[in-house]
């Protein structure tokens, strides 16, 4: 199993947010996580990527056979974990190009490889820019600074394509995208899918799952995965909303 989350409890400022979350992801799979607002989906992403302030009080995050909960975020990233942020951060003064070159070289250094040659890097940039239909005038600008909501999300997928992760969490990458951009993003993800990687897609809308077809759909409620199923579950949620899930949970 690529990622195995076992009975994970996570607190922020002493307040428990994840209350015994379980999730297993194998290579080659796509999992979708749905669930009402504020139930802990982004918190799970933060715990997997090692964000400060998210205290793991019990449970394990096993990735490639190792508990990674003590590893710093950059090491996890260099081990192939990627997060497409729900709210990408603006970083004035750092151009995307510079940022990506620094990130790729950090990854290479971690693997004991030589820095990327300028020509190779530029070629890769061009290729991936095409993949997500992102314009050069965007990549020459500072990271996310003044980007529209949709541009920010596209930029996340562009970065994912550049870094070629083994395990990627896409946190509401579809929100704020128009139909065309949604297809572009989905195509980008599908192009990267292989037998050697896996994706977790957090979304509120079944529509994205028409383009990125998941192997499993999970529902998160009150800090736990309370229901899992196939793609059909997403359709059911779209139709019925979450009330029946809540009842289902309350009735044990």
């Amino acid at each position: 199993m690529l990622l195995n989350i076992k009975d994970l409890h996570v607190s922020i400022d002493g307040k428990e947010i994840l209350k015994g979350c379980n999730l297993g992801v194998n290579n080659g799979e796509v999992h979708a996580i749905m669930g009402p607002n504020g139930t802990g989906k982004s918190t799970l992403a933060a715990a997997i990527t090692g964000r400060e302030g998210y205290d793991i009080t019990s449970g394990e995050i096993i990735y490639k056979g190792q508990d990674i909960s003590e590893l710093s975020p950059d090491i996890r990233a260099n081990e192939g974990i990627f997060l497409s942020f729900q709210y990408p951060v603006e970083i004035p003064g750092v151009s995307i190009t510079n940022f990506m070159r620094t990130a790729i070289n950090a990854q290479r250094e971690y693997r004991g490889e030589q820095p990327i040659a300028a020509g190779e890097f530029l070629k890769k940039m061009e290729e991936k820019k095409k993949l997500v239909d992102i314009q050069s005038k965007l990549t020459n600008r500072s990271v996310n600074e003044g980007f529209s909501g949709g541009e920010k999300k596209k930029n996340e997928i562009f970065q994912m394509a550049m870094l070629e992760p083994t395990f990627a969490v896409l946190d509401e990458t579809d929100s704020g995208l128009d139909i065309d951009a949604l297809k572009v993003v989905a195509n980008g993800v599908n192009a990267l899918r292989s037998e050697n990687n896996a994706f977790v897609v957090i979304t509120h809308y079944q529509r994205l799952l028409d383009y990125i077809v998941p192997d499993f759909v999970h529902v998160m409620y009150d800090g736990k995965i309370v229901k899992s199923g196939g793609k059909g579950l997403a359709n059911e949620l779209e139709e019925k909303g979450y009330d029946w899930i809540k009842e289902h949970v309350q009735n044990g």
């Binding site: 975020p73 990233a77 260099n78 951060v89 940022f99 870094l163």
Partner: peptide
């Protein structure tokens, strides 16, 4: 955190 999440 954003930068570190990219491996830096």
């Amino acid at each position: 955190f954003y930068l570190m999440q990219r491996g830096i």
